[in-house]
Structures are given as structure tokens and as C-alpha cells.
Design a protein around this nucleic acid. Structure first.
Length: 593
RNA sequence: GGUCUCGUAGCUCAGUUGGAUAGAGCAACAGCCUUCUAAGCUGUGGGUCGAAGGUUCGAAUCCUUCCGGGAUCACCA
């Protein structure tokens, strides 16, 4: 590729001139800044010491040498210690000719190596999905798609947290105050109904607690004394014992929730290859603990509880089994990890989980290493930042969460309003229009969330965050639709465009090809860094470059047939890349908008 | 308090192995539709890259200290 050719050429020129081999890691070509002429730049400062000449002289000597020895070097110039190299049009054109027909440009073929398992979403079944889950789902989905594009086999899994005290709280509240409401008879989404019950429980519990405080119950005993908590605990025990009535209620309510979740997932455009349920996996991990005890890497305290000592790793002691022999979150995770490892023999086990659980995953890996699991290092916590609102963190109980369904409703509605204002909905049938609003609204949402570096905490302002102009999803979609319009017209005008014969490039044409050239390496980086943000930012750069090209250079109006032909091919190539890169973010491209 | 993490324009964000005068979008202001979709393009203004030291030819980027925000350190999940 381009950089390899330049590096090789630079190295040879250096040896020829100075009789010494330059350090490989010092030879780095970067993109030339726009204010200078050239495509690639190398900094020669590092070589000053070896050559003992001024940076300008070195750059000039090497530039001259490369001009003759490397045929893709068209011209060069030297500014201070920077050697700017202009690549010949023929290089770009050859590159273009080799790739523009490739509909899988930048994508690698799927290999037969061990798969990568990506766990994401992992909701609790006691409340509906909110904005935080939206970030998780979009990230998990997108990272999976990006890894596939990089040639990996990917298994997307979802571990649903369908049991535990929090579910019992919703169940109990429904028994007491649910008035036999069902999603059908109350015309409400199942996850919303169950969520309401959870909130109701919390409300009633609070008033009980307040009552207890008045009665003078000490703070640390409040939860142990509250009748509602005792009832919930009791219900959990009955659940664990397999009590038929409780199980039936549990089944019913969970089914409501799944129906609701499925609708949300579908609308969000995410999917899973396999769904696990914690009710089926929560007992896993106990064997591992026993094994650890035997090996002496875990220890038992007087009360019978089992711990792992991580103090030598800079962490604390960690509980793995309670005194009564029941397991905790960590125990289950050890078990499910072992299950996954056995089931898929994955090369990587990626968990898409918020950064509030960094500590948990550190511990998980350490314990597995102590247990001599050689796949422990395959575990990777894809830790993403929280989504904050202007008024601070989202809190379910304080009603400051942004509900996923409502958020999507709003986005789609805004898309509709915008489209109508722009007068672009007039020729559409109703189903077509609705599809378009969905594509635009969700495109805006997905792009907004995925363009931010996953690791970073991000701010979401419902009032003003999601825009449709500038660096946004609809901007990318609009660019795609524009190209589509051009190509459609070309067909109507019976313009055939097949093989390129252009030999010279205008500056915006070259800029566009050079941007397209970047895609494969961006995609590879996005895979390595698990970062959809790299793809999103690339899409913006590409769309921006295209719009500049479009603005400055006539396409259909071009009279020279060779140029016309070439520009249409360039448009079509750009469109392919916009489309396939957007798909990696789960963003659909409308034909018209 | 320990550990981790973040701090870049009024706001939201880029800036990945150290490189030239730190970039976009939004918001503000000024232009461009009888011409391929104006959800676009062009331009203006806006910065002590949290602060101070250090490393070096060169630091937003690496190191140290400090300031400020967040997360975490549960017999919760």
C-alpha cells in the first residue's frame, strides 16, 4: 500500500545517501496538512543526529532522491523539517480502478478461527429499557458488526437477568396493587406495566420505612424490619424452592416483559444469536468455587463463607459463597464464563458493560486466573461511559430516566416534522413516509450516541442534543440520498458508466479518492479498538468531502464523456462505502430524503 | 481515604504509536438555490488544550504534583 511504498522508498533513499539504515519506527508518514501541497509528510527531525546535517537539507536530499527512485512521487516540497510528498494522480487512479467495483471494499472475509462472543444488553426484567441501555445495545450491536467486517466470527449473546429480589418486588406489587391489570386489558406495553409495579413497590416501601423511623427503628435495621421487604424475601425463597404459584406469576410477568423488550429491540434494530436466562445459570459457578477450595486458591471463613484473597493484586478480599452456601453475582459470572468458554471456545469473550463495573471484571479475571483457566485472558470488558442528562445522572426511582421507547418516538416525530417543513414528504405514500421517518429518526439517534468515544461519559440533552444538521446521522443519510438521486437520473438519461478512463484528477476528486482509500484502515482500527466512533467520524469526513466535491464539480452536467463516466463511478463508490459503513452502526440509508 | 477515570471554543465532541499556526458541528453573524436534492456549500468571530513543573529539536498527547468532576472499594445485581 501507499505507506509501505513510501516507507520502503524513504529507507532506500536514506541508505543510498547516508550509508546507514534509519530506525524503522522513526519512519512514519502522516497525512499532509491541508495548508501545504502534498499528500503524505514525513518528519525528518529524528534523523538529524545520525546524518548531522540540517533538517531542511536532509529533507531536500531525500525528497530529490525519492522523486527519481519512487515512481508514485510526483513532486515534493520542504517546510522546516517536514518533507511533503505529492503522490501522482496515476497512483490514486490505479487504486480507484482496482477497488471501485468491490462491493465489500474494506471488509475482510470471515475466517475460521475461534469466534468472538459478545455479550451485551443484559437487561433486568423489572423495568423498561432506558437511554443507558440504548447506548449499551447500540455499542454491542455495532462492535459485533465491526468485528464481523474485520473477518471474525461473532456470536452475539444476551444474558437476561430474570430472577432475584428485584423481580420479586414487581411481582409482589402486582399481587397487592396490580388490580389484575395485564398488558392486554390495560393497553400498555408489558415491560412498562411491570416497571410501574416496581416503582409502586418502591413508593410503598419508602412510606413503610418512614413509618419505622418514626417508631424509632435504627437505620441499619430498617430494611430488615420492613414488612414489604420481608414479603419480597419470602417470595424469593419460594421462587427458589420452585413454588408453583409463584413460578407461574413469575412466568407470566416475565413474558409480558419479553414481549415489550422484543418490540424495543426490533425498533432499535439490534439482535442476538442466543439468549441466556439467569434463572437457568444462577447456580453455575459453585463447582468452580469448590475446585478453588481444593486447590487452595480460595479459603473458607469460620462462618463457612468462601472468599478469594486478592490483596496481593492490590484489591480486597472478595466473597464468592455466602455462609448459607448461596451464590453471589460473582459466583454466577464465574459459572457463566466457564459455560461460554466450554460452549464456544472463543478467542475473545467481550462483555459490553458500563464502567461502573470495572472492578467486578478485574476481580472476575483475577479469580479465573487463580483457578488456572487458560482462557481467562480472553475475557475483555468493553467498558463504556454513562449517559448523563443536564440535571445529572439518570435515576429510575426519581423518574429522571429517558425511556427508550419514548426517546425513539420523539426522534421519529422530529424527523416527521422536519421532513414536512422541508416539503419532502409530499410524494410519499403513508407507509413510505413512516419508514423514512423511522430511518431518519433512528439514524440521528444512533449516530449521536455512537460518534462519541465509548469510554467517555457522554451528555444527552433531550431538548437540543439530537440535531439533523451538521455532524449528524441525517447529514450522512442526506449525502447518500443525494448520490442516489444522481445515479437514478443517470439511468434515466441512459448514461452508461462502466470502465474508468480518466488519467488526471481535480483536487476534490483526489481528495475523495484519498478519503475512500482510508476506509479499510479505519475499519481495521475500529475493530481493534472496539470503537464505532471511529467509523462514525470517518463517515462524517467522507460525507463532507463528497459534498464539497458535489458542490464544486459538475457531474451530470459534465460534457466530457470520460469525465462524466468517472465521476459517476466515483459517486457510486462513495455511496457504497457510505452505505456499508453506516450499516456497521445499524444506520439505514434512505433512497430519497 | 485507596484504586481507576475524565477535564480541549458558550454548548456537544474529534484530535490512537509525541510533530507544522489545536479541528468539526451547534449557537451568533455574513454570503450562495432560473443550474446534478440548500437536511447542502463558502466565509467571519470565538482557545493560557484544568494549573504548575519535568522529559526533548518538538507536548493537548509521556512523567510528577496539585485542583475539579465521575465511578468503584456490598453476604446488591
Amino acid at each position: 500500500m501507499l505507506d509501505q511504498i513510501l516507507i520502503q522508498g524513504f529507507k532506500q533513499a536514506f541508505i543510498d545517501l547516508y550509508g546507514e539504515e534509519p530506525a524503522e519506527n522513526q519512519i512514519v508518514f502522516q497525512k499532509t496538512r491541508t495548508e501545504f501541497e502534498g499528500d503524505r509528510t514525513i518528519v525528518v527531525f529524528p534523523f538529524v543526529k545520525i546524518v548531522r546535517k540540517s533538517p531542511e537539507v536532509i529533507a531536500d536530499e531525500i525528497g530529490n532522491r525519492m522523486l527519481h527512485s519512487v515512481d508514485i512521487v510526483e513532486r515534493f516540497n520542504v517546510v522546516k523539517g517536514f518533507l511533503n510528498i505529492l503522490i501522482s494522480d496515476s497512483y490514486w487512479i490505479t487504486y480507484f480502478n482496482q477497488h471501485y467495483k468491490n462491493t465489500r471494499f474494506g471488509f475482510k472475509e470471515i475466517d475460521n478461527e475461534a469466534p468472538i462472543v459478545v455479550e451485551y444488553s443484559s437487561p433486568n426484567t423489572n423495568k423498561p429499557l432506558h437511554l443507558g441501555h440504548v447506548r449499551n445495545n447500540l455499542l454491542g450491536f455495532s462492535v459485533s458488526e465491526i468485528l464481523k467486517a474485520n473477518g471474525h466470527r461473532v456470536v452475539k449473546v444476551n444474558l437476561v437477568n430474570d430472577r432475584g429480589i428485584h423481580i420479586c418486588k414487581s411481582m409482589l406489587a402486582w399481587q397487592k396493587w396490580g388490580e389484575n391489570r395485564t398488558p392486554e386489558n390495560a393497553d400498555i406495553k408489558g415491560d412498562k406495566l411491570v416497571g410501574e409495579m416496581y416503582v409502586r413497590f418502591d413508593k410503598e416501601l419508602k412510606s413503610q420505612l418512614a413509618q419505622l423511623v418514626e417508631e424509632g427503628v435504627p437505620e441499619n435495621e430498617l430494611l430488615k424490619k420492613a414488612p414489604l421487604m420481608l414479603e419480597a424475601q419470602d417470595m424469593l425463597q419460594k421462587w427458589e424452592a420452585g413454588d408453583a404459584q409463584i413460578r407461574e406469576l413469575w412466568n407470566t410477568m416475565n413474558t409480558w416483559v419479553y414481549t415489550g423488550f422484543d418490540a424495543t429491540y426490533k425498533r432499535l434494530g439490534v439482535d442476538f444469536d442466543k439468549i441466556y436466562y439467569e434463572s437457568e445459570t444462577y447456580l453455575l459457578g459453585k463447582d468452580l468455587v469448590q475446585e478453588g477450595l481444593k486447590q487452595g486458591v480460595l479459603f473458607k471463613k469460620e462462618d463457612g463463607s468462601v472468599w478469594c484473597d486478592l490483596t496481593s493484586d492490590g484489591l480486597d478480599e472478595k466473597l464468592l459463597l455466602r455462609a448459607d452456601g448461596t451464590s453471589v453475582y460473582m459466583t454466577q459470572d464465574l459459572g457463566t464464563a466457564e459455560q461460554r468458554a466450554g460452549e464456544y471456545h472463543p478467542s475473545k469473550l467481550i462483555y459490553v458493560v458500563g464502567n461502573e463495573q470495572n472492578y467486578h471484571f478485574d476481580v472476575l479475571k483475577l479469580v479465573l486466573r487463580k483457578l488456572k483457566r487458560d482462557w481467562a485472558d480472553a475475557i475483555e470488558h468493553l467498558s463504556y461511559g454513562m449517559v448523563e442528562l443536564p440535571q445529572g445522572k439518570m435515576k429510575s426511582r426519581e423518574g429522571t430516566v429517558v425511556d427508550a421507547d419514548e426517546l425513539m418516538d420523539e426522534m421519529v416525530l422530529t424527523a416527521k416534522t422536519m421532513t414536512e417543513e422541508l416539503g419532502k414528504s409530499t410524494n410519499l405514500s403513508e407507509p413510505e413516509a413512516n419508514k423514512l421517518y423511522h430511518q431518519i429518526g433512528l439514524g440521528a439517534l444512533k449516530y449521536f450516541i455512537l460518534k462519541v468515544d465509548p469510554k467517555k461519559t457522554m451528555m444527552f440533552n433531550p431538548q437540543e442534543s439530537v440535531d439533523f444538521n451538521g455532524n449528524t446521522g441525517p447529514f450522512i443519510q442526506y449525502t447518500h440520498a443525494r448520490i442516489n438521486s444522481l445515479l437514478r437520473k443517470a439511468v434515466e438519461l441512459n448514461i452508461r458508466f462502466e470502465d474508468n478512463q480518466v488519467v488526471e484528477l481535480l483536487s476534490k476528486e483526489k481528495m475523495l479518492i484519498s478519503q475512500l482509500y482510508n476506509f479499510p484502515s479505519i475499519l481495521a482500527d475500529a475493530g481493534i479498538n472496539r470503537s464505532p466512533a471511529l467509523v462514525a467520524n470517518y463517515l462524517y469526513d467522507l460525507a463532507k468531502d463528497f459534498n464539497q466535491f458535489y458542490q464544486e464539480i459538475p457531474i451530470l452536467k459534465e460534457e466530457n464523456v470520460i469525465n462524466l463516466n468517472f465521476r459517476l463511478l466515483l459517486c457510486s463508490f462513495t455511496q457504497h462505502v457510505l452505505q456499508s459503513a453506516s450499516a456497521l452502526l445499524g444506520m439505514e440509508m434512505p433512497e430519497k430524503m
